[in-house]
Simulated scan of single mutants.
Amino acid sequence: MRTFYLLSLLLFALASCQQPAQYISNEGYIYGTIYHVTYESPQGKDLQPEIEAVMMELNQSMSTFDSTSTISKVNKNEPTELDELFITIFKQAQKISELTDGAFDITVAPMVNVWGFGFKNKEQVTPQLIDSLKQLVGYQKVHLENGQLMKDHPNTMLDASAIAKGFACDMVADYLYSQGCKNLMAEIGGEVVAKGKNAKGNYWSIGISKPDDNEFFTQQKLKAIVELQDRALATSGNYRNFYVEDGIKYAHTIDPKTGYPVQHSLLSTTVLADNCMTADAYATAFMVSGLEKSIAIAEADPEIDVYFIYSDPNGNYQTYVSPGFKKLLKKEYE
């Protein structure tokens, strides 16, 4: 009887120490943008320090702002052992480059740099300069060999900003899932991964912003709301990053083949995929490719779904929605 009593006390004490599962939300600043993460923690533990450690691990590999990162050493042709994160991103980047006929290209860095942020250096850009940069740019000019990155030209530089942020979302989601968080949403600067359901028992709902130049400094208006069911989403858009010259709008996306900003009617591309790294890269590639070619690329890949916002000849907004994406749309706005 005494043994039974002590065992009962022990079980009660253990049960009392266990915290109930609860949804926890974290936010902060990383990669020059804001992140939001919400997850059902099995024992109510706040995992923000661990989440930020995961994101910083990627920073040490792919940040061009950190002179000691793997990608910075590669760009400076310094001897370095390529880490697993770098290799994973590089291989996927090369795959998307092939699938999009070079519209996505992580060697575009020299062209992006010469134009400057917000095209502040556009007066300095000449056809001769662009021609010289074309010798350095091209995803076929870099490859892996025995664990090393080989370049056809030593001045070729890599910039993984259009794919790494999506991969960071995947890393955070994978970490949380490994900790028993089956219901989660990880968002970094607009790239999103969602698993399971939210605190209300519903699938996670994600808004797609309406492209409106007049809303630059005001609250963004939504064009649509999509329901994420264990998938990832990434959006790329030119409508808030452009300059106008002689009545022509020049977008912020650089075409790796021409070296110049793209000019077409496509204003926003949203991609659904099984992982955010893929969605992120595709969204950027589609902003380079334009509407018709992007639709053809998307239709050829059954693993992605897309939502495109474009401008018709009269300047009105139109949308192209793939069949798979249409099934997940909860609401569309005018």
Score class of each variant (00 low, 15 high):
M1S: 09
M1E: 12
R2Q: 08
R2I: 13
T3C: 05
T3W: 15
Y5R: 04
L7W: 03
L7H: 13
L7A: 15
A13G: 05
L14M: 15
I24H: 02
T33L: 04
H36P: 15
T38D: 07
Y39G: 13
Q43A: 15
Q48N: 11
P49D: 05
E50N: 01
A53G: 07
M56R: 14
L58G: 10
N59F: 08
N59E: 09
S69C: 08
I71R: 00
S72K: 08
K73M: 11
L85A: 02
Q92H: 14
K95H: 10
K95R: 11
D101V: 13
A103D: 08
F104C: 06
A109V: 01
P110I: 05
M111E: 10
M111L: 15
V112F: 01
V114R: 02
V114S: 15
V114A: 15
E123C: 01
E123A: 15
L129Q: 06
L133A: 12
G138N: 04
K141V: 02
E145C: 03
Q148C: 03
P154C: 12
M157P: 00
L158V: 10
A160F: 14
I163L: 06
G166Y: 01
G166C: 07
D174V: 07
N183Y: 07
A186W: 00
I188G: 01
G189W: 12
E191N: 11
E191Q: 12
K195M: 09
A199C: 00
N202Q: 11
P211C: 14
F217M: 09
K221H: 08
K221S: 14
K223H: 11
S236F: 13
Y239G: 07
N241H: 09
K249A: 03
H252R: 11
H252S: 02
D255R: 05
T258M: 06
Y260R: 10
T269V: 13
T269E: 13
D274H: 12
N275Y: 09
N275E: 12
F286K: 08
E292T: 02
K293I: 05
K293H: 10
K293V: 05
I297N: 05
D305G: 04
N314V: 09
T319M: 04
Y320P: 00
S322K: 06
P323S: 04
G324C: 11
K326G: 04
K331P: 07
K331A: 13
